[in-house]
Amino acid sequence: MAGPQSVDRALALLDAVADAPGPLSAKALARRAGCSLSTVYHLLGPLTARGYLIRGPEGYAPGPRVPSLHRSFQRHMGAGTAVTALLRHVRRITGAEAYFTAYRGGRITVVDTTAPLTDTHHPFVPGIETRAHATAHGKALLAPLSRSARRRYLADHGMARLTERTITDEERFEAELAGVRARGVAVSVGEADPAYTCLAVPLSGRPDRALSVSLPVEDFRRRRGEVGSLLASAAAVFPAASE
């Protein structure tokens, strides 16, 4: 097997292993990829040899090459030591988990966060953000775009209803983003997850980068003004040139 199909299937295997809660056997991977066991073994060989996967007694898991790819991705997205320090600072002064998010190539990605890797129940994790219309960081990054660019983004990614608060109408969403541009702060109250609220602001001089925090809805209702002010102040002094 050669050509794009083999590449697509190899990537499908990587996705399956990455999304699984634990190691997967070759048979399980064959079922998920919809191909023969011999094809799976043919692809697992080079993926394991290059360190993208490791094989253990219970099956295949992400390999040692993965962390270096993640670090490289963060570096290319501008998440250097200044961003790490900024996130820690925001976490310390607000008591809420902090996030660095970017818009690039028609996609919105959560690049880095202070949320522990072991917190599997946390609703916002590093990776492609598929719920940008329902998150504060998504609103903060979509607001500065042209109307046509936003329409392309929403056409590509959709506006799924995630909770009863999710905005799924394009005109209503446009009105929401007009408010974001006027206030300089984006807010999502239970739109992506009913238990969480997030606030976001663009980084100083970088409308394609956003700083955000998330906290339980009840905490937000008590601390909205305080947290919003602290977040805006932290983003305003971030040295854009350091990226």
Score class of each variant (00 low, 15 high):
residue 69 L to Q: 13
residue 69 L to Y: 13
residue 79 A to Q: 04
residue 73 F to A: 12
residue 83 V to M: 08
residue 73 F to P: 06
residue 89 H to C: 04
residue 105 G to V: 01
residue 87 L to V: 15
residue 130 T to R: 06
residue 87 L to I: 14
residue 138 G to W: 06
residue 51 G to L: 07
residue 126 P to L: 11
residue 102 A to S: 08
residue 82 A to T: 15
residue 110 V to D: 03
residue 89 H to A: 07
residue 68 S to K: 12
residue 100 F to C: 01
residue 74 Q to Y: 04
residue 84 T to V: 08
residue 81 T to V: 12
residue 65 R to C: 09
residue 87 L to C: 15
residue 117 L to Y: 00
residue 101 T to P: 00
residue 137 H to E: 12
residue 59 G to L: 10
residue 62 P to M: 04
residue 67 P to K: 09
residue 85 A to Q: 15
residue 130 T to E: 05
residue 115 A to R: 02
residue 56 G to L: 00
residue 61 A to F: 09
residue 104 R to C: 09
residue 115 A to Q: 03
residue 97 E to P: 03
residue 107 R to C: 06
residue 120 T to A: 04
residue 104 R to I: 03
residue 73 F to W: 12
residue 115 A to Y: 03
residue 122 H to A: 15
residue 69 L to K: 09
residue 55 R to A: 12
residue 62 P to G: 01
residue 56 G to Y: 07
residue 52 Y to S: 04
residue 83 V to G: 08
residue 62 P to S: 04
residue 128 I to S: 15
residue 130 T to P: 05
residue 99 Y to H: 11
residue 76 H to R: 14
residue 51 G to K: 07
residue 56 G to P: 02
residue 117 L to W: 01
residue 104 R to S: 11
residue 65 R to I: 00
residue 82 A to Q: 15
residue 64 P to R: 11
residue 97 E to A: 07
residue 80 G to V: 13
residue 111 V to W: 00
residue 64 P to V: 00
residue 75 R to A: 14
residue 63 G to W: 10
residue 68 S to P: 08
residue 129 E to A: 08
residue 87 L to S: 13
residue 71 R to H: 14
residue 51 G to F: 01
residue 58 E to C: 11
residue 62 P to T: 02
residue 128 I to E: 15
residue 58 E to V: 10
residue 90 V to W: 03
residue 98 A to I: 03
residue 61 A to E: 10
residue 119 D to M: 08
residue 94 T to R: 06
residue 128 I to A: 15
residue 113 T to M: 00
residue 118 T to C: 06
residue 90 V to H: 04
residue 92 R to D: 05
residue 61 A to G: 07
residue 80 G to A: 14
residue 87 L to M: 15
residue 115 A to V: 04
residue 123 P to A: 11
residue 105 G to P: 06
residue 108 I to R: 02
residue 88 R to F: 05
residue 96 A to C: 13
residue 132 A to G: 15
residue 91 R to I: 02
residue 65 R to E: 13
residue 123 P to S: 11
residue 127 G to F: 07
residue 115 A to T: 01
residue 129 E to L: 14
residue 59 G to Y: 11
residue 70 H to T: 07
residue 124 F to D: 02
residue 119 D to N: 14
residue 61 A to H: 06
residue 52 Y to E: 05
residue 109 T to W: 02
residue 76 H to L: 13
residue 77 M to P: 06
residue 51 G to R: 05
